[in-house]
Design a binder for these strands. Structure first.
Length: 277
DNA sequence: GATCTATCCTGGACGC
DNA sequence: TGCGTCCAGGATAGAT
């Protein structure tokens, strides 16, 4: 399930593989992948050159020639692969971009949750709802203690769904939320407005550092995630909470517990992570 | 306005 | 072996 480190890894891989290439034509196998009129999208994409690929949160932004941007979200299992032209289609290929130099770019998605949207470059911050409402990137410059303190004081949510909500901050998903909460010793059901300033400060540090470290490891491979070269990330070997239910906590030895929070599987240490007033 | 819930999807695990 | 059921989860529309 791609979160920010995985999406950033895909972006870097795609830059090496398709930057500067021109789209000759497009086949749309799963129509719902591309929002709106598929036939119009095919016509609009034809002849456009991929000038750059940027990222905002978990969205990939393919900057195309003549001020067009293809906004792509991988959701659960979306993946990009480049293959020789006219390679027989594998199962789960949703969109094929026929590029110049005899290369095809496949968008594959086992669960077909991923979505793409075509917009005029620069309007994605208004026209793509997920980007319009998105909170700051998890970096030292953008994600400040003061900002977190301000929005957390006003929230009546519990911490896990709060951190998963991309309008509060960008980039976290189920895996890394469990990790940073374990690192910061915060219970996933702790009410947001009761988290102390010391905890907010430590949480912010852990979010920024954890996502940067995971990006260095090319992300986490759980289920089927691979980068644009079909390679798996290695950060799953570094995980301390997610997927380790029943195993001893690396801090205190207490068996980690798995519960459901906001419809999401959640692993935490019942001794280190205790709800406080 | 804030929060919660159902929905979209399919492969894999599991029980019978 | 084959079938049915459940689980995984990011974003969002609709309900509360």
């Amino acid at each position: 399930m791609p979160e920010l480190p995985e999406v950033e890894t895909v972006r870097r891989g795609l830059l090496r593989l398709v930057k500067g290439k021109t789209i000759q034509s497009v086949d749309i196998i799963w129509p719902k992948t591309i929002e709106g009129d598929n036939e119009a999208a095919k016509l609009i994409l034809r002849g456009r050159t991929i000038e750059d690929i940027e990222r905002r949160g978990k969205f990939l932004l393919f900057r195309l020639s003549d001020n067009l941007t293809l906004v792509s979200h991988l959701r659960m299992e979306g993946k990009y692969y480049t293959v020789p032209v006219d390679e027989p289609l594998e199962k789960h290929v949703c969109v094929v971009f026929h590029l110049d130099e005899q290369i095809d770019l496949w968008y594959m998605d086992t669960r077909k949750f991923g979505r793409m949207q075509l917009v005029k470059t620069g309007t994605e911050t208004e026209l793509v709802p997920g980007i319009r409402k998105m909170g700051p990137e998890p970096t030292d410059a953008d994600l400040t203690v003061a900002y977190l303190q301000q929005i957390m004081a006003k929230s009546r949510k519990i911490i896990k769904p709060f951190l998963l909500d991309q309008s509060n901050l960008a980039g976290l998903g189920n895996i890394y939320v469990d990790e940073v909460l374990w690192q910061t010793k915060i219970h996933p059901e702790q009410p947001v407005d009761t988290v102390t300033l010391a905890e907010i400060t430590a949480l912010r540090r852990n979010i920024i550092d954890e996502l940067a470290r995971a990006t260095e490891h090319h992300g986490t491979t759980v289920h089927s995630y691979t980068n644009a070269f079909g390679e798996a990330g290695s950060f799953q070997n570094e995980l301390q909470a997610y997927g380790r239910a029943g195993e001893p906590c690396m801090r205190c030895g207490t068996p980690l517990v798995k519960i459901k929070v906001a419809q999401r599987g959640t692993t935490y240490c019942p001794k280190c992570q205790v709800i406080h007033e």
